[in-house]
Design a protein around this nucleic acid. Structure first.
Length: 259
DNA sequence: ATGACTGCAATATGCAGA
């Protein structure tokens, strides 16, 4: 079974790219983030025509996540239990489904903006809610994974130049402690292999030739429980999807399970 | 060559992304 995650930065702008990628990569399950679309505007029919059912949590102009599956959808859920609000709004940042016997969450972790900004505290609170949500399934025997844009680089090597990030979000101890908390709950990170260069970056800014210069970050992550992690046969970042005009600024992470 | 931000809501430019 092939499971992938991709921050597509607008499903409306990216629909031609998305359908092309589904046809070539042939994922059984795809977690999407940054839909940037209303519930009504989600291209449910176009995806159904390709054989995918969709569990959608869409919030309009910002955020928005979905789980696409061509191996069935059971127990769909939208929204992280006890997720904090920001400016009084509980944003569309989580959606879940059990697909072909594998429970997955598609996650779009808050950016944090700046250390000390209210959005940074919101990010940490949101990650605490995630830790609580994974607690039980992490310890279970059924395969379970959380996939998405975590907006955290797990180590200093996961950004192109750590010196450029002095004082910035995405690399701070408190953010990385939230990832460690997932691991202490029983989740293991699935490490994708790069198709080029040393590190499997998943994000490159649109500006200043970041992609050609490989000034990237590895912030789109996959964490699975023991049953999931032990079934992983291969994992990689499809950087080809970042090339050319009309690309998202993120590349998909692809995980192949031996089930 | 992979190439010098992009998408959205609004309808000019500002916000957000990280």
């Amino acid at each position: 079974m092939r499971i992938a995650t991709w921050n597509i930065n607008s499903i409306t702008a990216r629909l031609p790219r998305l359908t092309q990628w589904l046809e070539t990569a042939q994922p059984d399950v795809l977690c999407l983030q940054e839909l940037k679309v209303s519930e009504d505007g989600f291209p449910r029919d176009a995806l159904a025509a390709l054989g995918y059912e969709s569990v959608v949590n869409a919030g309009g102009r910002w955020n928005g996540v979905a789980v696409l599956s061509r191996v069935g959808v059971e127990d769909p859920a939208v929204g992280l239990p006890d997720a904090p609000a920001y400016d009084g709004v509980v944003e569309a940042r989580a959606a879940a489904a059990t697909c072909g016997g594998v429970r997955v969450w598609s996650l779009y972790v808050p950016n944090g903006r700046e250390v000390g900004h209210p959005h940074y505290d919101y990010k940490l609170e949101w990650l605490a809610a995630l830790r609580a949500t994974v607690e039980q399934p992490a310890a279970g025997s059924a395969p379970f994974a959380v996939l998405g844009d975590f907006n955290i680089a797990p180590t200093d090597e996961d950004v192109w130049d750590i010196a450029e990030f002095d004082g910035a979000t995405h690399i701070t101890e408190r953010e990385r402690e939230a990832l460690s908390a997932l691991e202490s709950a029983g989740m293991k990170e699935v490490h994708p292999r790069p198709l080029k260069y040393d590190v499997a970056f998943t994000y490159w800014d649109y500006r200043q030739l970041c992609f050609p210069k490989n000034k990237g970050m590895r912030i789109d992550l996959v964490y699975g429980n023991s049953a999931f992690a032990s079934a992983v046969g291969d994992a990689y970042v499809d950087r080809e999807a970042r090339k050319g005009k009309g690309a998202s600024d993120h590349a998909p992470v692809v995980v192949d399970l031996e089930v």
